[in-house]
Write a protein that binds this DNA or RNA. Structure first.
Lengths: 143, 143
DNA sequence: AGTTACGCTACTTATTATGTTACAAGAATA
DNA sequence: TATTCTTGTAACATAATAAGTAGCGTAACT
């Protein structure tokens, strides 16, 4: 399967929404992401459930931010889109009968757990306002 | 898709091979892993190409270790089985036209890269002899 | 009423490790 | 030499899951 790009996509969308003072329709967002409005609604539903965005039906409806960018970390978004599994490698059998296998899985599990802990900490340390600021700096500095 | 379990499986097999002073057939190994001999041959082919094991055809044939356990790190095995992709999340578009998207992907890429670097370092720091020793200690200590 | 837009269900597609079948070829044994 | 055991490999099937698609319902604005 391809990589899960929900986190990346939603971060992208949320930053654009912050610069866009009107509701954005799923249609617009889908065009931006190169995908389909249904995929957008499906993925954004998680953000809505967490209160990060609101959706309005009808004329002039669409998606709007419901939180300050400072209040939302990358980790929050990761979790809001389902907190999908992070690693593509690992063991399928957590506590096998074979003692050798248990030793292997523990060693591997430890290494993966450490890496996951670091990643989570990094995602937790950055919020959407940080990213917006990086974007501003980038623009001021030119290409 | 399920997690890629090739690394975990091959570590399991290599440790068993070290305790088994005769060649192990793909059939035996497959039974051990709960899979199929063809899957075993396919996966072990990478280890053979790296010189970690040898395979012999015919009567009394099978797979034997070709290296001292101390010489093989978990990272070596990871790479020998194809060095599959580590993360299940991330962006599909490395350098998009949209500057916002680039900022997002860089931030996310940085976090993932850090986690990957840590994982690689951990895998590099442990070799098969270390795992074999942990197994021995476990057995001596009882359950 | 009509149009716009989200909400949701059900189905299809794409990708990739894994599983399976079939057959070729090499090596030991009788 | 014939038989049997075992690897090597190609080709195809399966499973899991994110993503893509179609259709219809429902709410809101004009």
């Amino acid at each position: 399967m391809r990589n899960d790009s929900r986190l990346s996509r939603m971060l992208h969308v949320l930053l654009h929404m912050a610069q866009h003072n009107k509701p954005m329709t799923s249609e617009e967002i889908a065009r931006m992401l190169g995908t389909n409005p249904v995929v957008v609604r499906r993925t954004m539903a998680g953000l809505r459930d967490e209160g990060f965005v609101r959706s309005e039906k009808g004329h002039g409806g669409g998606w709007v931010l419901a939180t300050d960018l400072k209040e939302v970390s990358l980790l929050d978004v990761h979790r809001a889109v389902g907190g999908p599994r992070i690693f593509a490698i690992g063991s399928e059998r957590p506590s096998p009968d074979c003692a050798v296998e248990r030793v292997v899985n523990e060693a591997l599990g430890d290494a993966l757990r450490e890496a996951e802990t670091l990643l989570i900490a990094r995602l937790d340390a950055v919020n959407l306002a940080d990213l917006a600021q990086r974007f501003e700096l980038r623009c001021d500095a030119g290409p």
